[in-house]
Amino acid sequence: MSLIAFMGALETGLIFGLVALGVYISFRILDFPDLTVDGSFPLGAGVAAVAIVSGVDPWIATFMATFAGALAGALTAWLNVKLGIMNLLASILVMIALYSINLRIMGKPNIALLGETTVISAVENGPIAYYFAIPMLLAVIVAVVMVLVALLLQSEFGLSLRATGSNQRMARSNGVNTGLATILGMALANALVGLAGALFAQSQGSADITMGVGVIVIGLAAVIGGEALLSTRTVVLAVIAAVVGAVLYRLAIAFALNADVIGLKAQDLNLVTALLVTIAIVLPRFKKQRSPKSKAV
């Protein structure tokens, strides 16, 4: 694998690290199976692309995309909390609706950003080669988000989110408004996904209506893979594990598709993804069976 291919995989992995954080919040913190991300990811990309093409400052456009993702997540939680729709079904309904909403926002299936000023433009023509500069910029953005998420999850609000996902009855008995916590937590999770979609569109130079297909699988693979490789005893370690899992996942995909010995091609991407997710799920169980403690028992 060439250096440029490696840096490109790192760049994509950092962006999907934000998706992994969103999936971690919904699946692990709130225990809310959320497929909204397949719609909120292209929603963020579309909102950012339309705003940038319309002359809006790219950082403001990125914030708008983040807010749009938050609205999508809040809607999913509202359907579950207020209307009593099962959480998985609520997320599927919003995901389906977002396909039409995204088309309405974009006006067409694809919007090109080539030649437009984006958040990436600031480093593309700098003294550092673009294939180094872009991952460095994204690493800074992702690091800031990781710190903010870790601090938030350790705050009183974060504790209420964790209590809601762990045991809603116990949380309510301790004065936690579990409905509001679910709505705000899902808004936060999908805000991160919307942010990832906005950065991905600006990184790739276009926003496409189909770019959200399979994003939930990537997020789950990152979270599960990160948990299999790193300790998640604390919230901080879990946040780090999610991002590291996303980066390693994209690097593994890039290596598999660029290794001539293996002989895989672009059409084998879903196959490689399925294999990696399977390995990530089975690995912790295998490690537990092989551990000295389990043998002693």
Rank of each mutant, 00 (worst) to 15 (best):
L188H: 07
L248G: 03
S100T: 01
P42A: 15
F67S: 12
S40Y: 13
F41M: 07
V261F: 13
I216P: 14
N110M: 03
W59L: 14
A198I: 10
G226Y: 10
L251A: 02
D208I: 04
Y24P: 07
G165R: 07
G13M: 03
A72Y: 01
T178E: 08
A122G: 15
A266H: 05
G46M: 04
A72G: 00
N167G: 07
A45K: 15
T36E: 07
K82G: 04
K287I: 13
Y131I: 06
G158R: 10
S100W: 00
F132P: 08
Q154W: 12
G175R: 02
N174F: 14
M106Q: 06
F286H: 15
F255H: 10
M86H: 15
L3H: 05
D31F: 06
L83Q: 10
M211F: 02
I120R: 05
V272L: 09
T12M: 09
G17F: 00
L269V: 13
V142L: 05
T164K: 12
T232F: 09
T164E: 12
N110Y: 06
A61D: 02
A201S: 12
A72S: 06
G205K: 02
D57R: 09
M7A: 06
R28Y: 10
A112R: 10
V235S: 04
A48N: 08
F16R: 14
A254R: 00
L10Y: 02
L271C: 10
I96M: 03
I262R: 08
K82I: 11
T117R: 07
I218K: 15
V37S: 07
G84D: 09
I105P: 04
S155V: 14
A241C: 01
M186D: 08
V223L: 02
N80Y: 08
T234C: 05
G219F: 00
L269N: 09
A198Y: 11
R169N: 13
V145L: 01
S231G: 05
I279Y: 03
N177T: 06
L184V: 07
V236K: 10
A254P: 00
A74F: 01
M1K: 08
P58T: 11
K288W: 13
V282C: 02
Q202D: 06
F286R: 14
N174V: 12
G13A: 00
K108D: 05
E124S: 15
A5P: 08
R285Q: 10
V282S: 01
V50K: 13
M95L: 02
I111S: 00
G115Q: 04
G8L: 09
